[in-house]
Write a protein that binds this DNA or RNA. Structure first.
Lengths: 183, 183
DNA sequence: GTATCTATTTTTAGAGG
DNA sequence: GCCTCTAAAAATAGATA
């Protein structure tokens, strides 16, 4: 019936992408995805994970670390060395923050999903009736309307920002190594 | 008509899996998947990536590193320090091996996919005709039969082993840190 | 513990803002 | 460069061997 709007995900061979722009686009799409995946494993399986990556254009480094660099890297470099008390305390604190944040994160995700669904069904209503969105508002009860408007108008941006930061950064992720700020 | 054979992938909340067995099963399913994903980014985007992870049961470490530990970790720990000639040569060598292996890996994957398809269509034939598999052999020409049998009987195991090793280990992945062998 | 299977969820290539 | 959208590709929970 209708034309397909996009071709959907295409299958591409696993090999160096020759076009530099494409390669960078792919990288900046896939690396956050890798971090997100690692973050899920951390949260689900109660393990520590550290990821370090160069970026395709140069010597910058990106990283994702849970709970702290010291625990992941130092312990990898010298696994037999016991971590000192300070390091362990900092790590423990990072873990606790991560657990707290995980609860908040799931709440935020649920809220965002609910908002999306609300918007979606609102739009559907409008499409079905050929009305403008403000004409459909009376179809939502007062409480929901308040939530909807408030969130949509004032909170959505902040919500999203927080979400994104938490999603990856419960632990710690950066675009450059700690000691190095030149770009 | 027919009953569904499995429930398919289920949606599960992102939170610590309380059941220890489940947690370990999930971990051992998801970590290789993370490495595989990293490996794809390395191959497609021409970057270096290192991943270090603890395992849920104890202090063992798992890792995936491309091209070498030195490049990824040392450079992260001390990004301003220039790597010495030896380190750079070893890294360059590892990179070259990774490129060569990528070609082989893609060949192997293609072969494995072809074999799977052959088996699948063979089984389909059998199902359609209600025959045993050996009765269908005459439907394959001699050359293909040889390939099929040879591969199936003698090479498939080796093929798979190589595949698995290459898939992750083009660069280097391990279940324990280099210096530490106690288990 | 590991491997396979399948239905479902999740990711993502490509195109357009 | 970044975000959004869509449909197709890829990953994976649960069950089973």
């Amino acid at each position: 019936m209708e034309d397909k709007k996009t071709a959907g995900r295409q299958k591409i061979p696993i090999e160096k992408i020759q076009d530099e722009t494409k390669r960078k686009v792919t990288f900046s799409k896939r690396l956050p995805s890798l971090y997100k995946n690692a973050s899920k494993i951390v949260r689900a399986c109660n393990v520590d994970i550290g990821i370090i990556s160069s970026c395709p254009s140069g010597r910058n480094q990106y990283s994702y670390v849970h709970p702290t660099t010291a625990v992941v890297i130092d312990h990898f470099v010298n696994p037999t060395m016991e971590l000192d008390l300070g390091t362990r305390l900092v790590a423990e604190n990072a873990r606790n923050i991560a657990i707290e944040n995980n609860i908040r994160l799931n709440e935020l995700e649920a809220r965002e999903a609910a908002e999306k669904e609300k918007v979606r069904s609102l739009e559907q209503m409008n499409n079905a009736r050929g009305k403008c969105w403000w004409e459909s508002i009376d179809q939502i009860d007062a409480e929901n309307l308040t939530t909807f408007e408030t969130t949509l108008n004032f909170a959505e941006g902040i919500l999203k920002d927080q979400l994104k930061k938490l999603e990856i950064g419960t632990s710690s992720s950066s675009e450059a190594p700690p000691e190095n700020e030149d770009n």
